[in-house]
Simulated assay, not measured.
Amino acid sequence: MAETGVAELLAELAALDDPKARAVNERHGDDHGVNLGQLRALAKRLGTRQDLARRLWESDDTAAKLLATLVCRPKEFTHGELDAMLRRARTPKVHDWLVNYVVKKSPHREELRVAWLADADPVVASAGWALTTERVARKPEGLDLAGLLDIIEARLKDAPDRLQWAMNHCLAQIGIEHAGHRARAIAIGERLGVLKDYPTSPGCTSPYAPTWIAEMVRRRGGE
């Protein structure tokens, strides 16, 4: 695609922007109104284009950044590029897609996980916790689960919203996946009470860690 393709795509994304969808998204901190199904269809039409993905990301348009995560080659980004990209991913959806669709497929994911986990920026640190949660579930070997619970117990209650959400997910995942740490994970959740009163739709599982752990263990047959 020619250099002008970015401008054309930005115009196409602007045409797809629905004011009603934007209003809903803005309540969750996202400043775009493009239907995600339409965005995925556009990505499918474009195919994988790393150079285009880099230019879309540099546009600072939220829908364009989301599109960039769908058309890029995750393994081609350097450690430094991914770190810089995360620090510019300030809206929740862009942050989430970058971590899940790009960083998790990168050969640098473990180095980034460790670095971000200790970062002073709570939004960056939340990405470190998201990557840690995946390791708790998929590749826990080498993780200090007791040490992670120590950190969660000390910091979860007063953590900023997005960091708190990510740490709470890790707490629940430890309790769900690791029976030897389950009682302590539940006890931490009960003592701190984080997200205990979070509104939950019928049929959905509460993000309150003790409830979340109990429900997922029940679904697995009470392991």
Rank of each mutant, 00 (worst) to 15 (best):
G80P: 02
M167S: 02
L66R: 05
M1Y: 11
H95G: 02
K75G: 11
P210A: 00
A154R: 13
W116G: 11
G142M: 13
R220P: 04
W116Q: 07
H108M: 01
V124I: 05
G193W: 14
T48Y: 02
H95K: 03
E110I: 15
P19A: 02
G47V: 04
K75T: 14
E8S: 07
L112C: 03
N100T: 10
E76K: 15
P202N: 11
L143I: 09
L56S: 05
R88V: 08
T78M: 02
T69G: 08
L9E: 12
I176E: 10
V114P: 12
E111C: 05
G175I: 00
A125C: 07
L195Q: 10
L149M: 07
T200E: 01
D150C: 05
R73P: 00
L13I: 07
K104S: 15
V124K: 11
D60N: 12
G5Y: 07
K93A: 14
D51E: 15
Q173K: 15
A183R: 15
W97I: 01
G128N: 13
T211N: 03
A14D: 15
E153P: 01
Q164V: 04
W57M: 03
T62P: 09
G147T: 08
P74L: 01
L156M: 10
G180N: 07
T78E: 03
L16T: 00
P199V: 11
D60V: 14
L143E: 12
L52M: 09
L86C: 10
Q50I: 04
D119C: 02
A118V: 05
H178P: 14
A120S: 13
V136E: 06
V103I: 15
K196L: 04
L70F: 08
R138C: 09
A146K: 09
D144W: 02
E3L: 04
H108R: 09
R73A: 06
W97K: 05
R162H: 10
G175T: 04
L52V: 00
G142W: 15
W57I: 01
P92H: 05
P19I: 06
L70C: 09
H28W: 00
Y208L: 00
R135T: 04
D121N: 11
A146W: 01
E215N: 05
V217K: 11
L149E: 01
A21P: 06
L52S: 01
R54H: 14
R184C: 06
T62S: 10
I152Q: 08
V136S: 12
T91G: 01
E26S: 12
L56H: 11
D119W: 03
L86N: 10
A146S: 14
E81K: 05
D144E: 03
